[in-house]
């Protein structure tokens, strides 16, 4: 079987969709292509179906929150959503990343390209509060249905409770809601 020659994903994408690519970052041999959030579906479709690229496996979608205690962050780039895609044919990975604003973080869903994105995106809807337009089932997945807030945002408190030691045991037992029969 003839395998078409591997293309450089960055150059191929820049040629095909020149206004989609916002930035390219190289770190520890990992390539990150930062793209325009409104074009994520066409970018993904291109990366999956173009001969010479064939990123056919969606490994992971992970979201990161750039919120900072000192409010030293870019309001238009508060959330980052990284798509880790993998090409089995050429055995290489690629990260496609979008930055989303603090107000109404919204990005197109890629579920129609990879069904695997269904649950990965649901987790981000649940944990980060990012909206995926066109997602078939945008319910909470890990937290209870009636949970308020998005636990993995940086401004969501960890929910720390005082640890019980022998010196403060009486104080804690007083407030602890112990169960009855």
């Amino acid at each position: 079987m003839d395998i078409p020659k591997a293309l450089n994903p960055v150059e191929a994408l820049k040629n095909a969709l020149p206004d989609a690519v916002a930035d390219v970052v190289e770190f520890r041999d990992e390539t990150t292509i930062v793209v325009d959030p409104t074009k994520i579906r066409s970018v993904m479709q291109f990366l999956r179906d173009t001969s010479g690229l064939i990123y056919n496996f969606l490994s992971d979608i992970s979201a990161v929150d750039y919120w900072d205690q000192s409010y030293n962050y870019d309001i238009n780039k508060r959330f980052g959503v990284s798509y880790h895609i993998y090409s089995m044919l050429y055995n290489r990975r690629l990260r496609v990343k979008v930055y989303l604003p603090e107000e109404a973080p919204t990005v197109e869903s890629v579920t129609s390209i990879w069904p695997a994105a269904n649950w990965l995106e649901r987790e981000i809807i649940d944990m980060m509060g990012v909206k995926f337009v066109g997602h078939p089932d945008p319910r909470r997945v890990l937290m209870p249905e009636d949970w308020e807030g998005y636990p993995h945002r940086r401004d969501y408190p960890l929910g720390y409770e005082t640890i019980q030691f022998s010196f403060n045991v009486e104080e804690i037992i007083k407030h602890k809601p112990l169960a009855k029969e």
């Binding site: 937290m143 408190p157 929910g159 720390y160 602890k176 112990l178 169960a179």
Partner: peptide
């Protein structure tokens, strides 16, 4: 010690 875990099943 976080948001998701009940701090001891004796609360339930």
């Amino acid at each position: 010690n976080n948001y998701a875990v009940v701090q001891g099943v004796d609360e339930i």
